[in-house]
Design a protein around this nucleic acid. Structure first.
Length: 992
DNA sequence: ACCGCCGGGTGCC
DNA sequence: ACCGCCGGGTGCC
């Protein structure tokens, strides 16, 4: 297969910029108008007053919003999104936020001005319209599709506006019976909120002459579902689930969703790896999900209408298909391979992806196009091919790739057997025929008039979309490239474009013409951040695949927004852990899949989140059905025909205690004494949090002492900052410490691992995009979310990257440490026993890795290294070298704990030495999983070095506690609790 | 809207 | 005739 890399194509296509993309249609402007009228916060150029309101007295015919248009506008502020924004921040994850405060029947008026319709029992959204020129208390009513239905009658809207604007309660509406006249209809309003607001809500209503009841009286015939919609289920239907039941159900939510998903499918011939049975099942299921004509979950066809049984919403138009889903297989079951198989096996209309065949092609064509006298010679084809891989451009990127692929394609033509196979293969023939649409001109003419293809050229393609976009974390980028190369036959050209790096080609046309475009979440969101110019958002993708898709779980993160804005026919989420913390995580996944109406927060909350949180059985049942319909998940223990999918070799963990030498012990105790004094003072002063970076620094220093005394850098804590440049230096010191502390500090805004970390003048570390967003939205008075100090964009200090400062002495005056000695004796013994065994030596301190390099060299070990500071190409080289099994290849990889992240494949190793304990035991597990995964043939032995009587032993205790918590508890604590538990941890560590 | 409300036309029975 | 009553025009926010 031929990989097209960003840099090369950047040159080859330089200058070809396609200005495609959306034009500002009337439709979009209407959307803007609506947005402007609804929300005072969203600025638009259109003044709602000068743009005549649609029903202004001077307008003769009652104008209508074409609301149906909102459904297909991808990236404009739509009514639907407005509704979403409204509920975005309202806390309702806990049962206590969801007390039913009362209900009342109200009236929706003005129906005749709007197109939105509602049925009996249908849920409606209530949206404040503070900018309404007639009444600033206006409350708009919209149906599930986001079409406006009418307004709440003004007398009732007045108290509701107050309640809604002050977040005293959320109001949900259900229309008890459908329209009986053209002008108004009743609506049952239910108020939800915290118990403490009950009084205020009731009072406010009473002041305006309304009395909230506890039940909706005159309830019409409600099915159990209908009752659920009215929010009465907690009172009327069965006993709510206990916390325990709920946790259980939740744990099982994603367990083994494979019943009825056991049909197998062979991949297209372009895949040269044979798939395991469970992978063929996944391929079959994914293919059927993409080609499905079924209605999305919870939709039914009823007498010419499409009816959503959960919201009771009905439409004439068939709801948009949801093509794709969640492949949630455990790590190591081959999600990547299955996805690759899907890409080449299921193009349009169930046909394989048309792929140009490199050299073999000409044999095929020669035979079949004899009469056309235009047979393409081998050399011509070669040249075309070379055009595609313009030689001068490859070298800097992945030289070994080029070498390999050309070598392979050069070898293959000799093999005529394959050519025969080819002729017999109708699918492949058809596929080749289709390829005429995107190959060079010489080829095109050769194809014309040919009669082989069963499918007329181009006719099988139901839309222009061609390319698959794969978005993944940087750490698995090279894995994707490797896997494409490994699993796609060398004699077919799969156009894979790596959209990465400064030189990436931003031509929409180029990107659209690829078979696969590979990029990272970072690149995608940084492009997206520069609004006007994100080529990835201009391409109409055939398929978008999110690898490790759970990373978009935070809807406020820029990268999540960037993902949601992509246009695609089919959408996939690959994730071993689709739900990481709470049910909420699922919302973003559904939102990405465009699974209506759950892609809008309000409906997600009302139909799933709230009921389930409150222990409602019907809600849980719906959730289960929902997940089951779109998810395939198998675990390592799942069985196919009585056998577990994958038998992984054993994995054993040993803890090796290291005793410090007297000298080391003395230094250690000295540092510990000082540290306790300082941290103790912070506790007394109550300045713990503001000095957090210093506290971390002290801990890091202790942990470094346990590894090697030379690791410990110069003393940085406690001084007073002087000049700005000194301050800057101090901040850089701090951010470096925080990032290298291995404590997996998270950004307090997105709660995710730090991306593009920056430090504020008040010494708190955030992702740059996150904190910039905060500063932008708070304008002048932006404050640090952690300490409320004033912050400015220009005062953010960036992490300068890993500078190889005057680090530990690795030269002449190198000395060993107890821990290094322990490691070396292990490694030497191992080499004696079996020189082919490969090991991962894992540390959180890259400078410790520097130190370890010295004795490794001294004893003649061949090793490689992978750490966070390495560029992508260096990483892939390191991985490739290590995975290589030929004699003389490195037997040791120095691996920084955080360098890989999930997905990294290091199965060549069967020994893991964890040099220093991590705060987060999951990080260690993840690291071990890099070699203990599919493809591992040996038993894996893990050795953890722990220094006796030290901070490390305490860390192990904390690790155990954490693990118990994870095993027991449902979900993770709120960030406030997290902060507290982090403080508690530090107390325990320092024995304060 | 088979309502409510407004404002003009009207005015014993 | 500064009222009542009638009946047409009209109607979200």
């Amino acid at each position: 297969m031929c990989v097209t890399m960003g840099q090369f194509a950047a040159r080859f296509y330089r200058g070809v910029f396609v200005s495609g993309g959306r034009s500002d249609t009337v439709k979009n402007r209407v959307c803007g108008l609506i947005a402007a009228m609804q929300s005072p916060h969203k600025s638009t150029n259109i003044n709602p007053r000068t743009a005549a309101p649609p029903h202004h007295p001077s307008t003769s015919a009652p104008p209508r919003y074409e609301f149906i248009d909102f459904l297909d506008v991808g990236n404009t502020m739509t009514l639907t999104q407005e509704i979403a924004n409204l509920t975005e921040d309202s806390g309702q994850d806990r049962p206590e936020d969801n007390v039913q405060i009362g209900s009342i029947q109200g009236t929706v008026v003005g129906l005749r001005y709007y197109t939105g319709t509602v049925n009996r029992g249908e849920m409606v959204a209530l949206v404040r319209q503070p900018q309404n020129p007639y009444d600033r208390n206006a409350v708009m009513v919209a149906n599930v599709y986001g079409s406006q239905v009418g307004h709440i009658k003004k007398e009732l809207a007045a108290p509701m506006a107050y309640i809604m604007d002050n977040s005293l309660a959320r109001v949900e509406g259900v229309v008890p019976y459908g329209e009986t006249n053209k002008f108004s209809m009743p609506v049952n309003l239910t108020f939800w909120g915290k118990e403490e607001n009950r009084e205020a809500v009731h009072n406010q209503m009473r002041r305006h002459g309304f009395r909230l009841g506890t039940e909706i009286k005159g309830g019409t015939t409600q099915t159990s579902l209908g009752r659920n919609l009215l929010g009465l289920s907690s009172k009327i239907s069965a006993i709510p689930l206990t916390v325990e039941e709920l946790k259980n159900a939740f744990d099982k939510l994603f367990d083994d969703l494979m019943e009825d998903k056991t049909r197998e499918m062979e991949p297209a011939k372009a895949v040269c790896t044979s798939l395991l049975p469970h992978q063929k099942q996944a391929l079959s299921w994914m293919t059927s999900r993409e080609n499905s004509n079924d209605l999305p979950p919870f939709w039914e066809e009823k007498s010419g209408f499409y009816f959503n049984v959960l919201t009771n919403f009905a439409v004439k138009e068939r709801p948009e298909k949801v093509l794709g889903g969640i492949l949630a297989d455990d790590m190591g079951l081959g999600k990547t391979l299955t996805t690759i198989a899907l890409i080449v096996s299921n193009f349009h209309n169930g046909k394989p992806l048309p792929l140009e065949q490199c050299i073999l092609n000409c044999i095929f064509m020669y035979v079949d196009h004899e009469e056309s006298h235009e047979a393409v010679s081998s050399s011509q084809l070669k040249r075309q091919h070379a055009d595609g891989i313009s030689a001068d451009t490859i070298e800097e990127d992945v030289p070994q790739k080029k070498a390999k692929s050309t070598e392979q394609s050069a070898k293959k033509p000799a093999n005529t057997k394959k050519g025969v196979v080819l002729l017999d293969d109708v699918d492949f023939a058809a596929a080749l025929e289709c390829s005429s649409s995107h190959v060079g001109p010489a080829k095109k003419s050769a194809k014309k008039g040919s009669g082989i293809g069963k499918v007329p050229s181009g006719g099988s393609v139901s839309s222009g979309a061609k390319a698959t976009l794969i978005v993944c974390p940087l750490s698995v980028l090279s894995n994707w490239l490797d896997q494409f190369e490994q699993h796609i036959r060398a004699d077919v050209t799969l156009k894979v474009y790596l959209y990465y790096g400064a030189e990436r080609n931003r031509s929409v046309k180029l990107l659209s013409e690829q078979d696969v475009v590979l990029t990272t979440y970072n690149v995608l969101s940084s492009d997206f951040g520069n609004k006007s110019n994100s080529p990835l958002h201009k391409v109409k993708w055939l398929r978008v695949v999110l690898d490790e898709g759970h990373v978009i779980r935070n809807p406020n993160a820029l990268q999540s927004k960037a993902i949601l804005d992509l246009q695609s026919e089919r959408r996939w989420i690959l994730s071993g852990t689709p739900i990481q913390n709470s049910l909420k995580d699922l919302y973003m996944l559904l939102s990405f899949l465009k699974l209506k109406p759950f892609d809008v927060k309000e409906w997600w909350n009302r139909i799933i989140q709230r009921p389930v949180t409150m222990g409602d059985r019907v809600g849980l049942k719906n959730l289960q059905a929902l997940v089951k319909g779109i998810t395939l998940r198998r675990t390592k223990n799942s069985k196919v025909a009585g056998r577990t999918l994958v038998q992984l070799p054993e994995r054993r963990v040993f803890m090796q205690h290291v005793t410090l030498s007297d000298e080391e012990r003395e230094e250690y105790e000295q540092v510990k004494k000082e540290g306790r004094k300082i941290i103790g003072r912070y506790f007394e002063e109550g300045t713990f949090m503001t000095n957090y970076a210093d506290v971390l620094a002290i801990l890091v220093r202790l942990r470094q002492y346990c590894c090697h005394p030379s690791l410990v850098g110069k003393h940085t804590g406690g001084d007073v900052p002087g000049t700005p440049s000194e301050l800057r230096e101090r901040l850089i010191n701090k951010i470096t410490l925080v990032l290298n502390s291995g404590s997996d500090e998270e950004c307090a805004i997105c709660l995710d691992s730090l991306r593009q970390p920056v430090i504020t003048y008040c010494a708190h570390v955030y992702c740059r995009p996150c904190i910039c967003e905060v500063i932008r939205s708070e304008k002048e008075q932006a404050r640090c979310p952690l300490c409320r100090a004033e912050i400015k964009t220009k005062e953010l200090v960036e992490y300068p990257g890993e500078e190889k400062e005057a680090g530990p002495a690795t030269g002449e005056n190198w000395r060993s440490s107890s821990k290094v000695d322990a490691l070396m004796s292990n490694l030497l013994k191992l080499r004696n026993e079996d020189p082919t065994v490969k090991s991962l030596v894992v540390s959180q301190f890259t400078r410790f890795m520097d130190l370890i390099e010295v004795p490794l060299r001294e004893y003649g070990f061949s090793f490689t290294r992978l750490d966070g500071s390495m560029a992508q190409k260096a990483r892939s080289k390191a991985i490739q070298d290590f995975q290589d099994s030929s004699p003389g290849s490195p037997t040791i990889m120095l691996l920084s704990l955080k360098a890989g992240g999930v997905g990294l494949n290091l199965t060549a190793a069967s020994r893991v030495y964890l040099m220093d304990p991590a705060w987060n035991p999951a990080a260690e597990d993840q690291c071990v999983d890099r070699c203990h995964r599919l493809g591992q043939t040996r038993d894996v032995v893990i050795t953890k070095f722990i220094v006796k009587d030290s901070v490390e032993e305490n860390m192990v205790k904390i690790q155990k506690k954490k693990q118990e918590l994870v095993d027991k508890a449902f979900g993770v604590k709120k960030s406030q609790d997290r902060k507290q538990s982090r403080i508690d941890e530090i107390r325990a560590l320092m024995e304060i």
